[in-house]
Design a binder for these strands. Sequence first.
DNA 1: TCCCATGGTTTCCAAAAAGTAACCTTCACC
DNA 2: GGTGAAGGTTACTTTTTGGAAACCATGGGA
Lengths: 119, 119
Amino acid sequence: MMQDDYPALTLEIMDLVGDKWTLLLVYTLGDGPLRFSELRRRAMPISQKMLAQTLRGLERHGMVDRTVLPTAPPQVEYALTDLGQTFLSAARVICQWTKDNLAELQEARSRFDAQRLAA
Amino acid sequence: MMQDDYPALTLEIMDLVGDKWTLLLVYTLGDGPLRFSELRRRAMPISQKMLAQTLRGLERHGMVDRTVLPTAPPQVEYALTDLGQTFLSAARVICQWTKDNLAELQEARSRFDAQRLAA
DNA sequence: TCCCATGGTTTCCAAAAAGTAACCTTCACC
DNA sequence: GGTGAAGGTTACTTTTTGGAAACCATGGGA
């Protein structure tokens, strides 16, 4: 594995998940396919606009499938693709790291902020 | 491992690395400690302002150590802390995933964009 | 006929992020 | 006393992002 490739890949990662909602939606869809409105309820307080926009991005990258159900009124179901599933597995590693180190992160922040305030 | 905790953790992750330069700097510092100007050269085209700002953020979260060397003029060395190192290890998993799936991501994008253009 | 739900899009606005360029401080050296 | 390097900070501007609210298309049911 060539370490040299990583810096360039970070740009791709930021394009993929470097916004406010993408990661949250991927995790939410990790529980199974959801319709637009149910997804919105679970990912609150996301706005309708940002939900639509973020889902387009995920669809565009092949991480999410969009299926229109033949109901009336038509319902739309969103589901992780296989690619989306493997991404979720990888993302869980970062999430687990964050969980394991949450206390240390918060302490570091407090220490740093306190020292800034003193100066 | 409770899946339910993940959505909340995504917020913390975005606070940590949800900007344009943090991830790139962490990877660049993965090669070893670097001084401000050398770090800037390697992470180009980052501006002086964003480099300083992003390093403050990393220092604040305890991911990076800042050491002023007793030289004239004083030089400043930045290095990943132990916490930063473990974070890098976790982040590499996402990077490897991106590398492994780069072609598929790009194809998905092309397909999606072509279809939008046709409409 | 009008209303409602679903799943959006559009418009307009405010806030946040990032880029550019100028400026600053300290010390060594000439 | 002027210059230059290192490592920043500040002020100003532009770009990007996100939120609120209004609007829209479809079709079923009262």
